Amino acid sequence: METILTIKNLNKIFNKRVHAVKNVSFEIYKGNVYGILGPNGSGKSTTLGIVLNVVNKTSGEYQWFNGDLETHDALKKVGAIIERPNFYPYMTAEENLKLVCKIKGISYTKAQEKLELVGLIERKDSKFRTFSLGMKQRLAIASALLNDPEILILDEPTNGLDPQGIRQIRDLIKLIASQGTTILLASHLLDEVEKVCSHVVVLRHGEMLYQGSVDSMLSSEGFFELKSENNIVLKQTLFKHNAVDTIKEEEEKLIVYLKENLEAKELNQYLFENGIILQHLVKRKNSLEEQFLELTNNK
């Protein structure tokens, strides 16, 4: 699988005391949608700034496209939006994009092509100042795509948008990814990462807590919701099973967390053999939110 970006032992210290990025390492492979997930101040934007050559690293290394290109040349194959969209307010959407084309030496035909892609072709003659925040963000994405980059980098792409704007940006990210562009986005929104990303890197206080596929993060052992006539006896019996980790009581039900995989029919049979008839049995997956909170609470 082709490697787009490799980050090794990256560190950034501001003013000799704020360790914003702590020994972070991960790889971005072609054709996936990656999310850097973490609360504000976790080092997401700093990490993106370093690999885009706008923030100087303290130590560590990164390389684009297996190191085949110098950073300056590699960044010509990268599209990025790391700040709020900034275009000329009295120029139209198309005029703004054509100006970017002129600066970057790109054919003007790309302006119309990308306006169509982001759903703004009908507003191509409207002045930028008349656009909603969501439309401005879509125009910024169009601008970042003018050079047909191999990877698109987005920092908090739905920040400040209303629900409709959020949905439009998410749908657009999925569309761009479906056409073969690798995407790396930073977000503090669990829902955003869960809905659009195939892979996730979790940061907290500059430290990397997890990296891998979203599916792998969600496919932890999960948990059961159980209820019987006597939950006290049920709880005592459950604790004797090797797969059971912890048990919480919630609204007359027992929430049973596992330390290894256990199927519902196996648990039901075990309890039946121990004289317990269940009134309620449901197996659930951990949500990304629960997984994230478990990671961050343990640090």
Results as ranks from 00 to 15, higher is better:
E2F: 14
T3K: 15
I4P: 07
L5C: 01
T6G: 09
K8G: 08
N9D: 09
K12A: 06
N15R: 14
N15P: 09
R17Y: 05
R17I: 13
R17D: 14
V21T: 10
N23Y: 04
S25T: 15
S25N: 06
K30Q: 15
N32S: 14
V33A: 13
L37I: 08
L37K: 07
P39H: 11
P39R: 11
G43P: 11
K44P: 09
T47H: 10
L48M: 15
I50P: 00
L52V: 00
L52M: 04
V54R: 06
T58Y: 05
Y62Q: 04
Q63I: 09
F65L: 12
N66P: 14
D68C: 06
D73Y: 11
A74V: 13
A80C: 03
A80Q: 01
A80G: 00
I81R: 04
R84Y: 09
P89C: 09
M91Y: 15
A93G: 15
E94P: 02
E94M: 14
E95K: 10
E95H: 09
N96T: 01
L97E: 01
K98I: 14
K98C: 14
L99M: 05
K102P: 04
I106W: 08
Y108F: 15
T109V: 14
A111S: 15
Q112G: 11
E113H: 05
L117Q: 00
G119C: 01
I121W: 05
E122I: 00
R123Y: 11
R129M: 08
L133D: 05
G134M: 13
Q137N: 02
A140K: 01
S143P: 08
E150F: 04
I151D: 07
I153Q: 01
D155R: 06
D155S: 08
P157C: 04
P157E: 05
I166V: 12
R167I: 09
R167M: 05
I173Y: 04
L175H: 06
A177I: 12
T181I: 15
L184R: 03
A186P: 04
L190G: 02
E194L: 11
K195A: 13
C197G: 15
S198C: 11
V200Y: 07
L203E: 02
L203D: 08
R204K: 15
M208Q: 15
Y210T: 00
G212A: 07
S213A: 05
S213M: 01
S216G: 08
M217S: 14
L218T: 05
E225C: 08
L226G: 03
L226A: 03
S228M: 03
S228H: 02
E229D: 13
I232L: 10
K235I: 04
Q236Y: 03
Q236V: 02
H241N: 15
A243T: 02
T246R: 14
T246M: 09
I247G: 02
I247E: 06
E249W: 10
E250D: 08
I255E: 04
Y257A: 00
E260F: 11
N261D: 13
L262S: 06
A264Y: 09
A264N: 04
K265P: 06
E266L: 13
L267R: 03
N268D: 13
E273N: 12
N274C: 03
N274P: 02
I277R: 07
L278N: 01
Q279F: 03
R284Y: 13
K285C: 11
N286T: 14
E290M: 14
Q291H: 10
Q291F: 11
Q291L: 11
F292S: 03
L293P: 08
L293V: 13
N297L: 03
N298I: 09
